[in-house]
Design a protein around this nucleic acid. Structure first.
Lengths: 113, 113
DNA sequence: CCACTAGTTCCATAATACTGAATAATGGAA
DNA sequence: TTCCATTATTCAGTATTATGGAACTAGTGG
């Protein structure tokens, strides 16, 4: 298995972030990670109420979030612990990412969780 | 030709906006419209330096921006005058859209224009 | 070593996007 | 009005990208 690639802050682009968050599943994952007080592993989303996706699809979504620079994934034994890189991103992109999260979380959308 | 559809503020969603801005061409168009002091028509982007796309493709991109609620297009004779709906969106989504624009425009990316 | 769990990779299928060509709509000139 | 130039949209074929089941890799514990 290949090592997990995390882009450096320099390599992260607005475009990459927007692309990663353009998918409903990925915003949902990201928003949940942002709200969580500790790192979550991928399989926490396997039967997570609204998200009913096979693990191969989830794995792909996590990869896209990771390679866009939105999340950090650390191996802990057999599982991956995922957390957001919000603080880092704030330094580079200002209020963009938090703005997206807030707008998403304020939205009166019932199919979110 | 069908009439141009513009969603009402209520119908505009974070997800729709993120999807619309997930494409490099569309962010480019949107950023340029946001910077322009007057409405621009579609064909202004036909041979606009970095954007070298057929008009059918551009037309599709404008449609997506419009139906996501990001821009407003008004027919003026044979052309369309496009402008952003930034002010409206600010009311509903707070700093999200402006945050995206600022981050995009601050980015030291040479292939933007 | 074997079984179990967590994620990843592969690949066939499904869904989207791109774009040249045809079409529609408008305005102006003859 | 009729014709023509201009602007933008629609259509259809092709190309690109996403999805998800099956096979696989890796770590952990018995």
């Amino acid at each position: 298995m290949r090592p997990l690639y995390h882009p450096s802050l320099k390599e992260i682009t607005v475009q990459g972030i927007l692309y990663a968050l353009s998918d409903p599943v990925r915003v949902c994952i990201y928003a949940e990670l942002a709200q969580a007080d500790s790192a979550m592993n991928c399989s926490a989303f396997l039967s997570n109420g609204n998200l009913k996706l096979p693990k191969s699809t989830l794995s792909q979504h996590f990869k896209i979030l990771r390679e866009a620079g939105l999340i950090r994934s650390e191996r802990k034994g057999v599982e991956l612990k995922n957390s957001t890189r919000c603080q880092e991103l704030k330094k580079k992109f200002g209020p963009m990412v938090v703005g997206i999260l807030q707008a998403y979380q304020n939205e009166p959308n019932e199919s979110k969780h």
